[in-house]
Computed example of a mutant assay.
Amino acid sequence: MSRRSPSSTVVSGMVVPAHWTPEQALAVAECLQAMREALWLLYGPQMQQAWREQVMPTGSPPEFDPDAPF
């Protein structure tokens, strides 16, 4: 079992330092937002397609049986 430093916490599966100042956290958030915007400008349609492929089922839909209960 790995040990995690008490100066960090796991949020949404990511290790986030808990010792940053609010200014440091804001700087990282602003950097991530700028990166998000740049990625969207370059890859927006491809990212949308990749997302669709992740959430849409592949293959044909199941057979419809009007007599099947809900």
Results as ranks from 00 to 15, higher is better:
30 E>T: 03
23 E>Y: 06
30 E>D: 10
8 S>C: 11
28 V>Q: 13
22 P>T: 12
32 L>V: 04
19 H>D: 15
67 D>S: 15
31 C>H: 12
5 S>P: 02
36 R>T: 08
24 Q>N: 08
53 E>I: 05
56 M>S: 10
60 S>G: 03
16 V>S: 03
45 P>R: 04
40 W>I: 00
65 D>W: 09
7 S>G: 05
46 Q>N: 06
42 L>P: 00
30 E>C: 10
26 L>N: 13
46 Q>P: 00
53 E>P: 00
44 G>R: 01
29 A>R: 14
70 F>A: 15
50 A>W: 06
5 S>M: 06
34 A>M: 04
2 S>A: 13
52 R>T: 04
11 V>I: 13
13 G>H: 02
6 P>H: 12
44 G>Q: 01
5 S>D: 15
62 P>I: 06
28 V>Y: 09
9 T>N: 05
9 T>Y: 07
7 S>K: 14
67 D>T: 11
62 P>D: 11
30 E>P: 00
53 E>K: 04
70 F>K: 05
66 P>I: 07
48 Q>D: 09
32 L>G: 08
44 G>E: 02
50 A>F: 07
11 V>R: 05
14 M>Y: 14
34 A>K: 09
4 R>G: 15
31 C>V: 02
17 P>W: 09
48 Q>W: 05
56 M>K: 04
3 R>D: 13
5 S>T: 05
17 P>H: 10
49 Q>M: 11
6 P>I: 09
68 A>I: 01
1 M>E: 15
2 S>F: 10
26 L>T: 14
50 A>V: 12
49 Q>W: 04
11 V>S: 10
38 A>T: 12
4 R>E: 12
23 E>M: 09
13 G>P: 02
